[in-house]
């Protein structure tokens, strides 16, 4: 058994040789939804500021756990953390970027953004009440589209996810029945349909099963050219999923009155607002163990606010309004020890 000890020795040697102090590295973990944009920001920020970001998408709940335990420099969560918990964990919460969800369908003959749906109808599909695509309620919204006599197969995320949190928040907002019977959360007790793992699982299942409807992050729908639908917003207009309609939703939100920036961007006012938009959040200790690293986290997001809008756009995310960015900067100054 000389091989293992040889291995250990060489690995030790390797780890000793390659330990140049990387004081500028910051580690974050949590939400999967913003991971691509954080990675892209990290790459650009490294060139501009010398900061090296290591962001790992381990899930929002796990991200919260990590920052509660202080095993990372910052945590990230898709669902805002409630104020009492933030207080007891001594954390500052602020939004980083926004994104949107799209509904996707597989109906023979129906093209991208052709079908018009409302939140009420989607809710009834997921409650198992509307079961055929040629249901009069759907046909009424879609004059001119031939809808087949096909069973509706709702598909949902089987893994706990921020995406499900946003989707069920939407269904809860538009339907009191959904709110009381199912509610909203990163995973819920589904009434009808089948589960699939991840955005890719939902997309693949919808692609395979005729008559399926599902929900994915809009970036996923765009990149994979999935058959998205129009949705009716609060103003009663049908809108297509696009960066413009997402931005409209963000502009019409009431940022000022959101405690801990826990902004609700679901079904906002405005003629052109897309109804399913959400922000994703960063959690930062107010009493950091290591003030340098904490300062670097703020430096990173300051850079991202200033310079990251185009990168966000290229990956189908939406940057925060400037007023909100300034408010967050003020909070950093006021609340983080450093």
């Amino acid at each position: 058994m000389q091989i293992p000890s040889y291995f250990t020795a060489s690995m030790l040697a390797l780890s000793l040789v390659a330990t140049p102090a990387l004081a500028q590295q910051i580690t974050g973990a949590g939400a999967t939804f913003p991971a691509p944009v954080y990675a892209k920001w990290g790459e650009a920020a490294k060139a501009a500021t010398g900061l090296e970001l290591n962001y790992q998408a381990i899930g929002s709940g796990a991200g919260q756990t990590q920052i509660f335990n202080r095993t990372v420099d910052f945590g990230a969560s898709d669902a805002p953390v409630d104020s009492a918990k933030l207080k007891s964990a001594n954390l500052l919460q602020f939004p980083a970027v926004m994104g949107a969800l799209s509904a996707i369908v597989n109906i023979p003959g129906v093209e991208i953004d052709q079908l018009k749906l409302s939140g009420e109808i989607i809710t009834e599909m997921y409650l198992g009440k509307i079961t055929k695509w040629n249901d009069p309620k759907i046909v009424e919204l879609n004059k001119g589209v031939t809808l087949p006599n096909l069973a509706i197969a709702p598909v949902y995320r089987a893994d706990g996810s921020g995406t499900t949190y946003v989707w069920t928040s939407y269904l809860s907002t538009v339907s009191p029945e959904w709110k009381s019977q199912v509610g909203s959360g990163t995973s819920v007790k589904w009434v009808a349909g089948n589960g699939a793992k991840g955005n890719d699982g939902v997309a693949a299942t919808v692609r395979q099963v005729k008559g399926a409807i599902g929900y994915v992050e809009n970036a996923y729908a765009i990149q994979n050219k999935l058959t998205t639908t129009q949705l009716r917003n609060k103003a009663g207009n049908f809108v297509k999923p696009s960066l413009a309609s997402f931005a409209a939703a963000a502009e019409n939100a009431d940022w000022k009155n959101a405690p801990d920036y826990a902004i609700n961007l679901i079904d906002t006012q405005g003629a052109n607002s897309w109804p399913i938009v959400s922000a994703t959040f960063i959690l930062l200790p107010k009493d950091p163990k290591d003030t340098v690293r904490s300062a670097n986290v703020m430096k990173f997001f300051d850079w991202a606010y200033k310079n990251g809008a185009d990168i966000a756009k290229s990956l189908e995310y939406i940057a925060l309004p400037t007023a909100v960015q300034d408010a967050v900067r003020a909070s950093w100054k006021a609340e983080i020890k450093g």
Binding site: K197, N199, D200
Partner: peptide, 8 residues
């Protein structure tokens, strides 16, 4: 982390 991402 990559398999379920939107990017080819």
């Amino acid at each position: 982390q990559y398999a379920g991402s939107p990017f080819d």
